[in-house]
């Protein structure tokens, strides 16, 4: 049972990460391959601040804000790029952040990582048991989903989708699409940042290698399997994608094989979806 609680906590964290990516990628059409960098930035921000004695709630929100500021910067400097080049620029943004985390040893302890991260405590509560953490993560995930659902079904959300479908047309109508994209990216990065904080304080150990290319594939797989611009799809896909590889554990294979097998499974699922069902489970639009 405690094992399934662990899985559900991970589902909650990846749900926030995937839904926030869907806001940028699916609803706004921002091809962001650097989403995991926001996740990592959030994790490190939150951990470094709580280590310095800052209150958890403040550190948690700061994680989102720092990620959000980087999101703003990323949109502003890449605003002229499109297609492959935007994908490459966001991917190299990810690599720059990754090498910073790896090399700024005096701040991040580099490849050694940061161990013994405190579990969150606020308002007199201290979340030490996994059951309590599951409750905490589920609440945050629920709040995130409700907020993002409200955003995408609001007039602002329709503008985001219009930016994706016909940016030029929207500009003709006098809308500032760069501003819209920046807002969407900042919101998306904010939730990725708080997901990073939740991840760090749950696992209690982070290292730069927690935030690599394989993580991007994982989150992209979730969003694409679920379908672009579908929160319902992302919800279903997160459960499927995070839970399926756990079945590998019940087959008697050595643990050294579990890691690579899981990555192989994700890559195969992603390839099969792209080949045979490019709109995913509930997707309404094509990836362009």
């Amino acid at each position: 049972m405690s094992y399934w609680i662990h899985i559900l906590i991970l589902v909650g964290i990846y749900l926030i990460l995937a839904v926030s990516l869907n806001l940028a990628l699916g609803y706004t059409g921002l091809l962001n391959l650097g989403h995991v960098a926001f996740f990592g930035l959030g994790a490190y921000t939150s951990v470094l601040l709580t280590d310095a004695g800052v209150h958890f709630i403040v550190a948690f929100l700061a994680a989102g804000l720092v990620a959000s500021l980087f999101g703003l910067g990323l949109v502003l400097i890449t605003r002229k790029l499109k297609g492959d080049y935007l994908a490459l620029a966001t991917l190299s943004f990810h690599f720059v952040i990754y090498s910073l985390l790896l090399n700024w040893v005096s701040l991040t302890r580099g490849p050694l990582g940061i161990a013994g991260i405190a579990k969150p405590s606020f308002f007199g509560f201290s979340i030490t048991s996994n059951t309590a953490y599951l409750f905490f993560v589920s609440s945050i995930a629920l709040i995130t989903i409700v907020i993002i659902y409200k955003i995408v079904s609001s007039p602002f959300g329709r503008l985001l989708q219009a930016t994706r479908d016909d940016e030029l047309g929207l500009r003709v109508l006098g809308k500032n699409t760069t501003k819209l994209k920046a807002k969407a990216m900042m919101l998306s990065a904010f939730f990725a940042g708080i997901a990073g904080s939740l991840f760090a304080h749950y696992i209690t150990y982070i290292e730069p290698n927690s935030f690599t290319l394989t993580e991007i594939i994982l989150v992209l797989t979730i969003v694409i399997v679920g379908g672009l611009a579908s929160i319902k799809g992302t919800l279903a896909a997160t459960f499927i994608i995070i839970a399926i590889p756990e079945l590998l554990r019940f087959v008697a294979i050595p643990s050294a094989i579990v890691g690579p097998s899981r990555q192989i499974l994700y890559a195969l699922i992603l390839l099969m979806i792209l080949l045979y069902r490019p709109r995913g489970l509930f997707g309404r639009i094509d990836l362009t």
């Binding site: 091809l31 297609g83 492959d84 994908a87 290319l213 394989t214 991007i216 594939i217 992209l220 694409i224 690579p260 097998s261 990555q263 192989i264 994700y266 890559a267 195969l268 992603l270 390839l271 792209l274 080949l275 490019p278 094509d286 990836l287 362009t288």
Partner: peptide, 21 residues
């Protein structure tokens, strides 16, 4: 007639697949 982005993502998936194999 998939977009180049789909091809890009599928090629990253292929890379991850090969490395892990």
């Amino acid at each position: 007639k998939s977009s180049t982005v789909i091809l890009l993502i599928s090629s990253i998936a292929l890379l991850i697949l090969a490395e892990n194999l």
